[in-house]
């Protein structure tokens, strides 16, 4: 008889507390007058969305994309370029950001997915760098220096994205929606096939799945979600520059996914929180905080492959094992 799976594991409790904490954060910020926490966590929520999107292809699809930050730039520039041309409506900007990301993902995905393994890593990396140079070269939209956005995306009268609290909740709702979407996706037939491809693509092809199409679809969905995250990021910073899609930013996204726990729905969110909070804390100690972060990463890779999520699961198991049943 299979053991009864309890919903009340340590991991689930932590996850629930985390989501509640995220939802209540503006209340704390308001009460404690901690405006910085709100700014920091808005950024964290936006980056978590990007990490969740990367996790769909990296964690569930086994596609090691090293150019995922490119969609942050594409989404951001869609907002920035339209704003520069006088189009402020979010009903135009955001769909354009989504469409542009989808199109880019479709083209580079179609090319990159012809290769596998380390070639795939390097090709996605190279395509992202190509986009980086394109945007750095367009003088009209700021080139290297980036583009200041003077007005945030306009939606309806009641919704004001310049209001910090409202903007935070917009980001959070989108993040929760994305998490739900990924959760539904990976538990659908599509997601099962995708995870099958991750474990053994040859076998999946042998039993008759057109794996290329599944992978490409996942690649495009991930691109779209990350493009949306880019549109949010540009709104938050009131600025977009090619540096958001520099390859080290793609590295940051991978770190978030792996640090949090690859191939789990909520892991990337924990990873984004962990990395960005760690960055904040360490840079408070020393200007040279990356000298600590670098070796720390190596240690995580060597000894804690499951990430935070895996750690919680292990801790939870020990915790339940000790109790007499």
């Amino acid at each position: 008889m299979p053991p009864k799976t309890s919903l009340l594991t340590l991991r689930n409790i932590v996850v629930a507390l985390l989501l509640i904490a995220l939802a209540l954060l503006p209340v704390y910020a308001q009460l404690a007058g901690d405006r910085f926490a709100l700014t920091l966590f808005t950024r964290i929520v936006i980056m978590a969305l990007a990490a969740v999107s990367l996790n769909l292809i990296l964690g569930f699809g086994g596609m090691m994309s090293f150019g995922h930050a490119v969609y942050l730039g594409i989404g951001g520039y869609a907002v920035g370029m339209l704003a520069k041309e006088g189009v402020y409506s979010g009903f135009v900007q955001w769909p354009v950001a989504i469409l542009a990301s989808a199109l880019f993902a479709l083209v580079i995905g179609a090319l990159s997915l012809r290769t596998r393994g380390v070639y795939f890593i390097m090709i996605t990396l190279a395509f992202a760098q190509m986009a980086y140079y394109i945007f750095a070269g367009i003088a009209r939209y700021g080139g290297d220096d980036g583009l200041t956005i003077y007005k945030r995306s306009q939606f309806i009268e009641a919704l004001n994205l310049s209001d910090k609290v409202q903007f935070y909740y917009v980001c959070l709702v989108i993040l929760f929606a994305a998490i739900y979407l990924v959760y539904r996706l990976i538990n659908s037939r599509f997601g099962m096939v995708l995870q099958g491809v991750r474990s053994n693509e040859v076998r999946m092809r042998a039993i008759g799945f057109a794996t290329y199409r599944y992978k490409l679809t996942a690649f495009v969905i991930a691109g779209v979600l990350c493009g949306l995250s880019g549109a949010l990021l540009a709104n938050q910073a009131d600025f977009v520059s090619p540096s958001v899609m520099y390859w080290t930013r793609s590295g940051d996204l991978i770190i978030m996914v792996v640090l949090g726990g690859m191939g789990t729905v909520i892991g990337p969110v924990m990873g984004a929180i962990a990395l960005l909070v760690l960055e904040e804390v360490l840079s408070g100690f020393t200007e040279y905080w990356q000298i600590i972060l670098g070796p720390l990463l190596l240690l995580v890779v060597l000894f804690a492959r499951g990430g935070i999520d895996g750690l919680l699961a292990t801790l939870g198991e020990r915790f339940t094992l000790r109790r007499p049943s």
Partner: peptide, 18 residues
């Protein structure tokens, strides 16, 4: 390969800061 990418990425941070 993912481990390689992450581990050596950590090394880049380390070397740059050093």
């Amino acid at each position: 390969h993912l481990d390689h990418v992450l581990g050596t990425f950590g090394l880049i941070l380390f070397f740059n800061e050093s």
